[in-house]
């Protein structure tokens, strides 16, 4: 299982895709980071006088991690699309299914491999707010909570993408389907915000709704549970799908 994850990660880095994604997302976020920083420096003197004014963490770190979430939403489908679909198209899946591995081993191995890649990306993103420590105090606990939020978000992105990738043999279809579903889950609470009280359950479905409190440093077990449930559900669906293929051909 870990071997599979390692191989998955290694193969990702053999393709230019991984490097391009790392470089470009880092560049985008660095630009956003700098513009947030610049804005903060500009207005710092004005807000210093206000009591309980937002600090550097609220002004820079939280928006940065919020933007990072959007970028992760955009790139996750590109990472997950190839996991199973490409394996299918190259007809290399029998290698894994005739090895002494269960369907769960295969799926979890692939999940961990892609998860590890985004973990690397996440660590690189976190270096930016951490660099603020050189000249300022930041709320490390709020940063940690935001990072945890991103981590949970990544795991649910990966699980959803992996499941959709296991349904098709065309990576492009997997990518589009994943992107659509992720985006839908992202914006589904807009209906809930439009004033209908009975649409609250839509808000509960939203990936974004559960991420926002974490960004503000509010850690609710319900939010954590939501992401864990999403991840486990889609992983189970993917395992089920793979096993079903063996049974029905």
């Amino acid at each position: 299982m870990l071997n599979l994850a390692r191989n998955e990660l290694y193969r990702l880095f053999l393709s230019p895709l991984a490097w391009v994604i790392l470089a470009l997302s880092q560049a985008l976020l660095a630009y956003l980071f700098l513009s947030h920083l610049d804005y903060f420096v500009q207005i710092q003197s004005q807000i210093a006088a206000i009591p309980s004014a937002p600090g550097v963490t609220e002004m820079i770190v939280a928006p940065l991690l919020g933007n990072a979430a959007i970028i992760l939403l955009l790139i996750s489908p590109l990472i997950t699309m190839r996991l199973m679909a490409e394996e299918r198209r190259n007809q290399s899946l029998p290698l894994l299914t005739s090895s002494p591995l269960s369907a769960a081993d295969v799926i979890i191995g692939k999940f961990l491999g892609s998860f590890a890649f985004l973990l690397i990306l996440l660590l690189m993103i976190l270096l930016m707010p951490l660099s603020l420590l050189l000249g300022s105090n930041i709320d490390l606990m709020q940063l940690a909570s935001g990072a945890l939020g991103l981590l949970l978000l990544i795991s649910s992105f990966m699980a959803i993408g992996l499941f959709l990738s296991s349904l098709t043999r065309q990576p492009a279809i997997a990518a589009i389907a994943t992107f659509s579903l992720l985006f839908f889950l992202w914006i589904v609470d807009w209906a809930g915000q439009s004033g209908h009280d009975d649409a609250g359950w839509l808000g509960w479905l939203s990936l974004l709704k559960h991420f926002e409190p974490l960004l503000l440093g509010e850690l609710y077990s319900a939010d954590v549970a939501y992401y864990v449930i999403v991840t486990v559900t889609f992983l189970l669906l993917a395992i089920r799908k793979l096993d079903n293929e063996r049974l029905t051909g």
């Binding site: 290399s92 090895s99 002494p100």
Partner: peptide, 19 residues
């Protein structure tokens, strides 16, 4: 799992990772 340890399989299309 334990049975597959004793078996090697080459399908019609060899399952390879070209990269």
């Amino acid at each position: 799992k334990s049975a597959k340890v004793h078996m090697g399989y080459l399908p019609e299309t060899p399952p390879l990772y070209s990269e």
